[in-house]
């Protein structure tokens, strides 16, 4: 069963900008899927079309087997959206926001109350249910948007940058929550600037750039394509001469720090052996970029945060 199927999806905005150039994409039910791309690549447009916030120019969207044009009520009922920007009524109370959203999906009030309690407790917002939403902290607002998206029990949850601006502790607890949700059967599509997040959580990935899908594969297969790993090496003493170690690219950052591109086929041992033979002592080693970030740069040619 496919949770999401896009067929030749195209979007041209009124100003003539072609945001999507006829993309095809499939996300299997139960998947944890990353949709990655630099700013302006077409991620938000794709999500906007799937969630009916953006009108497509042409193409077909199928959600849990329902055609979004012809069976739009069934299709929409399957989706929950956690948008990138805060978009709830800042003057309403936390509990009321969640209850209203359940009502919009046609969930009877009695059932909605039970679900509201469940999702607010899961996201540690139950104590805040009578608080006006604008008084919540940034992290709580993000969690409220997740609670709101889950109250109608969607089969497909779309999260657009869910942890942007959230501190590391809350981010990790949100990861645990999303993992558990996925384990219980909810398909999750995630866009994020934190590639570590995508690498940690997602089983499959698509990279979109300039309105086209340039890669759609499993995370493990994608990471296998990685040619280099990048590391920082901290040296015990200043070393004026940079050794030439065949196959490795060494860049001097300061007197005692080097950045090294390590070919995956060679690994680290030959490098350490060569440095040891030259009397160069390494006191620490750190990963320069996470693997997915490295691969993303390799594929797209610029980092995530940069505009397409």
């Amino acid at each position: 069963m496919t949770a999401l199927r896009l067929h030749r999806l195209r979007k041209i905005y009124d100003n003539g900008f072609e945001a999507l150039k006829g993309i095809d994409l499939e996300v299997a039910e139960g998947d944890f899927f990353a949709l990655l791309g630099p700013n302006g690549a077409g991620k938000s447009t794709t999500i906007g079309i799937v969630t009916s916030l953006v009108k497509k120019t042409s193409g077909k969207v199928e959600i849990c087997g329902y055609d979004l044009d012809r069976q739009w009520e069934q299709a929409k009922r399957c989706v929950g959206l956690v948008p990138q920007e805060i978009n709830f009524n800042q003057f309403e109370k936390v509990g009321q926001i969640v209850l209203n959203q359940a009502g919009y999906y046609g969930v009877p009030r009695r059932v909605a109350r039970r679900r509201m309690e469940r999702v607010l407790k899961q996201l540690e917002l139950w104590d805040r249910r009578d608080q006006v939403s604008r008084r919540l902290s940034g992290g709580m607002k993000r969690r409220l948007m997740i609670a709101r998206a889950l109250v109608h029990s969607p089969r497909l949850l779309i999260l657009d940058e869910p942890t942007a601006g959230v501190d590391i502790e809350i981010r990790h607890s949100m990861w645990d929550f999303l993992r558990e949700l996925n384990r219980q059967g909810t398909t999750i599509i995630l866009t994020t600037h934190y590639l570590e997040e995508a690498e940690q959580l997602c089983r499959n990935v698509a990279i979109i750039d300039h309105g086209e899908i340039i890669e759609a594969t499993s995370m493990s297969r994608l990471l296998d394509q990685l040619e280099f790993n990048s590391y920082f090496l901290d040296l015990r003493r200043e070393t004026r001469v940079v050794p030439d170690v065949p196959g490795y690219r060494i860049e001097v950052l300061d007197r005692t720090t080097w950045a090294v591109a390590v070919p995956r086929r060679l690994g680290l041992n030959p490098l350490f052996q060569a440095l040891d033979e030259r009397g160069i002592e390494i006191v620490d080693i750190r990963q320069r970029r996470n693997r997915l970030e490295q691969l993303f740069l390799q594929r797209v040619g610029r980092p995530m945060g940069e505009a397409a």
Binding site: E73, R77, P83, N89, N100, Q101, Y104, Y105, H152
Partner: peptide, 17 residues
């Protein structure tokens, strides 16, 4: 106000005719 604060999106994503 719903447009301005964007909470109109709560209705647009929902299966509301």
């Amino acid at each position: 106000s719903a447009k301005f604060q964007r909470h109109i999106e709560e209705m647009l994503v929902a299966p509301m005719p």
